[in-house]
Amino acid sequence: MTEDISIKIINPDDEKAAPILEELSANLYLRFGSDGRNSFTDWQNNNAKFVFVAAELNNEIIGCGAIRPIEGNIGEVKRMYSKFRGKKIGQTILTFLEKEAKKIGFTELVLETRVKNIEAVEFYKKQQYNIIPNYGKYIDRPEAICFGKSLI
């Protein structure tokens, strides 16, 4: 399936992105009681260090992900979502984001997910992300688990 998936950089405000972002938010809210939208409010469309991507298959957006700067040469992975499990959509998106991050000049990527989100925790471990101390607004939040990966 991965050979048929295309990854495109788009604006998260693009109307084509709305359905997948709505699905992601509804999924998060249903599973964890929070939709994750508040962590995406500082998005800067004109800043090249902010990258939002959509995964497309047969003209349908089936996944999304983003990176944004958080400090120095560190980028943060945000809004990762795959409509279908086990199809390597998330892996394809994350690989694309890592390549873009290197082009931008990020030397490290970090991210946060919920401890309860077992699928995400296992996914990031498989992608060679290591558990790191919680950072930023996640420092005193026991429900959060943070990961990091060197891009060097």
Rank of each mutant, 00 (worst) to 15 (best):
K8E: 09
K8L: 13
I9F: 05
I10S: 04
N11I: 02
N11C: 08
P12N: 11
E15G: 00
A17S: 12
A17F: 05
A18I: 11
P19K: 10
P19Q: 11
P19N: 12
P19G: 11
L21T: 03
E22D: 14
E22N: 12
N27W: 08
L28C: 01
Y29N: 13
L30C: 01
L30S: 05
L30F: 06
F32G: 04
F32M: 04
G33R: 08
G33C: 09
S34W: 09
S34M: 13
G36E: 06
F40P: 03
D42I: 04
W43M: 06
Q44D: 09
Q44K: 15
N46I: 03
N46G: 02
N47Q: 05
F50K: 04
V51W: 02
F52W: 13
V53I: 12
A54T: 04
A54E: 00
E56M: 12
E56Q: 12
E56S: 11
N58G: 14
E60W: 00
E60N: 15
I61C: 07
C64M: 09
C64L: 08
A66L: 05
A66M: 09
I67S: 01
R68S: 06
I70R: 08
I70V: 13
G72C: 13
N73C: 02
I74A: 10
I74Y: 06
G75P: 03
E76F: 05
V77F: 08
V77C: 07
V77W: 00
V77L: 15
K78D: 12
R79T: 05
S82N: 10
S82V: 07
K83Y: 01
K83L: 10
F84Y: 12
R85W: 06
R85N: 13
G86V: 15
G90W: 12
G90S: 13
G90F: 11
T92I: 06
I93S: 00
L94P: 00
L94A: 01
F96C: 04
F96P: 01
F96R: 05
L97D: 10
L97Q: 09
E98M: 14
K99V: 02
E100P: 03
A101G: 11
F106Y: 15
F106G: 09
F106V: 13
F106D: 07
T107Y: 02
L109C: 04
L109I: 07
V110P: 07
V110K: 14
V110R: 15
L111G: 14
L111E: 12
L111T: 14
E112H: 10
T113S: 14
R114E: 09
R114K: 15
V115A: 13
K116A: 15
K116C: 08
K116H: 13
N117K: 07
I118N: 12
I118L: 13
E119Y: 11
E122R: 15
F123N: 06
F123Y: 08
Y124N: 08
K126G: 13
K126P: 02
Q127D: 04
Q127F: 06
Q128Y: 14
Q128M: 12
N130P: 03
Y135N: 10
G136E: 09
D140S: 15
R141K: 15
R141Y: 12
P142C: 06
P142K: 14
I145R: 01
C146G: 14
C146L: 11
C146I: 08
F147C: 13
F147N: 08
G148C: 14
K149Y: 05
S150F: 07
S150N: 14
S150P: 02
L151G: 02
L151N: 03
I152S: 08
